[in-house]
Design a protein around this nucleic acid. Structure first.
Length: 596
RNA sequence: GGUUGUGUAGCUCAACUGGAUAGAGCACCUGACUACGAAUCAGGAGGUUUAAGGUUCGACUCCUUACACGACCA
């Protein structure tokens, strides 16, 4: 398909040379897919040629169309509408394309000239509370981007940088010491990450109570916030942690361990994985060497109080603190260290950070600083920035208890899938394990599809009632199409209609042609999604494919077709559609069922 | 205050990066199961693309200036 488009462009360029004696490079031609209300596959926009050729758009279109119809065998016809030359591709070419895609192995990498060694960092949670809906958008994006890039043949590492140290986890630890009474995930039956989250909430509640009391005693609010005993103790605990206090470290390890068990279970449930874990407790000191390097190179400067800064005004940013006066590191210091470490580990030519858009500025600074340091990998850093997920009630706020918990959400989706499936009653013959597996597949399909459908940089709205939808442009719609095809294939196998050569066909039904054309575009779509780090492009594509197939399905019979070659072709088209849907959905992290 | 993102049908989102009459889904109406799976398909209705200027053969897209919402930086 990509090849075909290039060939057509080259032919057009030749035609311009022949007919008008002018030279226009193939890359300069403006081509687009033909809109579906017109006949054709490719459309040349001729407006842009009027100046150089000195003719009207219609004349140009007519002349070029005639030339191509006569000289390019794959162009079977054309029509000119105003400044648009619509080129029709013959069915014999589509059948050739179809045979080509049948021969393509499932795991063949799609052609692309993108980066070869890629690190995708995503999830990167704090260890003081369980994952919520916002994390899910991050995780699904990261996982899908990694899989898409992998499909272009690149070596991809999925990395998770766990923020396991800092004041937040100390808050949970302190509250646990105070109120925990030795409770464990085992003794309480609470999942580890939720248990730690419970103490984080407890901390916040008691902390607020302390502030209120201090304020009642006449202390100003900002002072009260700093002086509340719980806060000073949490700070104290962080200090003890940094000094290696054994008791604190033991508690820290124990509680983080619980959180990791909880996270792992969630990751397993939602079907994502990682190749490499980084822990901030192990990397947070690394950045100081980079700061030293920058001072030596003279790109950073030290202020009188001893703090180290970088001046990024020329880059349109600001002066930025890199190291505090007391020598302790700030966020950016750690990130400098981690970037270097990742580069040492994987020698990447692209490093993708899936991080919410509230950190846009921070990421610009990171890149700017690496640039100043002359790091070869500064250019390789890509911030895949995504917007927050809002609820109908507004922004999710953990302090106000309005977050949508990831585990609960998945469970609700599974329940909905179960209810819907049982109402439709089409899965007799599945064991109860298989049925549960199916509900899970459908639930996650709906959720992932919903979150990946939207352009990452846009904020999106999640309405719990409306978003759990199984009709229309949804994951289950695509999954349903696959299940439908699977049913066709089961019957085809019984009838012995699978495999073998597709020949003896001359023309295609309109719906067949549309489907073949779409299917031929698959490698190009994956390459584009990889280039733009945009799963939403692939979501749009699988939806188009499923729609095209469903239209074909209702308009032409497969087994009722008397003509044997047609019957075989339709089975093969179904099979190829099924393969493509499965492959595309897999890159989105979504499984497709054989029946539902 | 500074920087930056977003604004498209009642709702949730597209629009191939400047091209044709701005497209889908949901919700709302109308049709299609004795057929290979109706979680489907076909059709209807729904728009001054926040507003006003500008650039040109042509603007949702680019440039100004407002307005609204968000985020970040003091």
């Amino acid at each position: 398909m990509q090849q075909l488009e290039q060939d057509i462009k080259a032919a057009l360029s030749a035609a311009i040379q022949q007919v008008f004696g002018a030279t226009v490079a193939a890359e300069q031609l403006v081509m687009q897919p033909t809109r579906k209300e017109f006949a054709g596959t490719f459309t040349l926009v001729t407006f842009s040629l009027t100046k150089s050729l000195g003719k009207s758009p219609e004349q140009i279109g007519q002349a070029l169309g005639e030339w191509l119809a006569a000289n390019e065998s794959r162009v079977s016809g054309f029509n000119v509408v105003k400044g648009f030359l619509n080129l029709e591709i013959g069915d014999s070419e589509w059948l050739r394309q179809f045979a080509e895609m049948l021969a393509r192995p499932d795991n063949a990498p799609v052609p692309s000239n993108g980066p070869q060694r890629v690190v995708v960092e995503y999830s990167s949670p704090n260890t003081n509370k369980p994952l919520h809906l916002g994390h899910l958008r991050n995780i699904f994006l990261g996982y899908s981007v990694a899989e898409i890039v992998k499909a272009t043949g690149a070596t991809v590492t999925k990395a998770n940088l766990i923020n396991d140290r800092g004041i937040h986890i100390c808050k949970s630890m302190l509250a646990y010491q105070r109120f925990g009474q030795g409770e464990t995930p085992q003794s309480s039956g609470i999942k580890g990450d939720h248990l730690i989250g419970k103490y984080y909430v407890l901390f916040e509640r008691h902390y607020r109570e302390e502030i209120r009391q201090l304020e009642a005693e006449g202390v100003a609010q900002d002072i009260a916030k700093r002086q509340a005993p719980l806060m000073t103790q949490a700070q104290q605990m962080l200090l003890q942690w940094e000094q290696g206090d054994e008791e604190v470290l033991a508690l820290w390890k124990q509680m983080n361990g619980w959180v990791y068990e909880g996270f792992d279970e969630t990751y397993r449930t939602i079907g994502v994985d990682f190749d490499k874990y980084y822990y901030e407790s192990e990397t947070y000191l690394l950045g100081k060497e980079r700061v030293e390097e920058g001072l030596q190179k003279g790109v950073f400067f030290r202020k009188d109080d001893g703090s180290v800064w970088v001046d990024l005004k020329e880059e349109g940013l600001d002066e930025k603190l890199l190291l505090r006066a007391d020598g302790t590191s700030v966020y950016i210091t750690q990130d400098l260290g981690t970037a270097e470490l990742k580069y040492q580990d994987f020698n990447y030519d692209s490093s993708v950070y899936v991080i919410a858009d509230e950190q846009n500025y921070h990421m610009q600074v990171l890149q700017g600083v690496l640039h100043k340091l002359g790091k070869p990998y500064a250019e390789a850093i890509h911030h895949l920035s995504y917007g927050m997920v809002d609820l109908p009630s507004g922004r999710m706020k953990s302090r106000e208890g309005t977050v949508v918990d990831a585990d609960e959400l998945v469970q609700e989706m599974v329940d909905t899938a179960r209810r819907t499936t049982q109402e439709l009653g089409k899965i007799e013959g599945l064991s109860s394990e298989e049925a549960e597996q199916l509900y899970h597949t459908l639930a996650l399909g709906a959720l992932k599809y919903f979150l990946l459908k939207v352009d990452p940089k846009k904020r999106m709205l999640f309405n719990p009632e409306e978003s759990i939808n199984f009709q229309g442009n949804t994951g289950p719609f695509v999954q349903y199409t696959h299940a439908r095809i699977a049913a066709i294939m089961r019957k085809a196998t019984e009838l012995g209609l699978t495999g073998g050569q597709i020949d003896g066909l001359e023309s295609l039904h309109e719906t067949e042609r549309d489907a073949v054309q779409l299917l031929a575009g698959y490698p190009g779509v994956v390459a584009e999604a990889a280039r733009l780090l945009a799963p939403s492009i692939l979501v749009q594509y699988v939806y188009e494919v499923a729609k095209a197939y469903n239209r074909f399905y209702t308009e032409v019979p497969v087994f009722g077709e008397p003509d044997e070659p047609k019957r075989r072709f339709r089975v093969a088209l179904s099979a190829q559609t099924g393969r493509t849907l499965k492959a595309g959905m897999r890159l989105l992290g979504i499984m497709v069922p054989e029946r539902m």
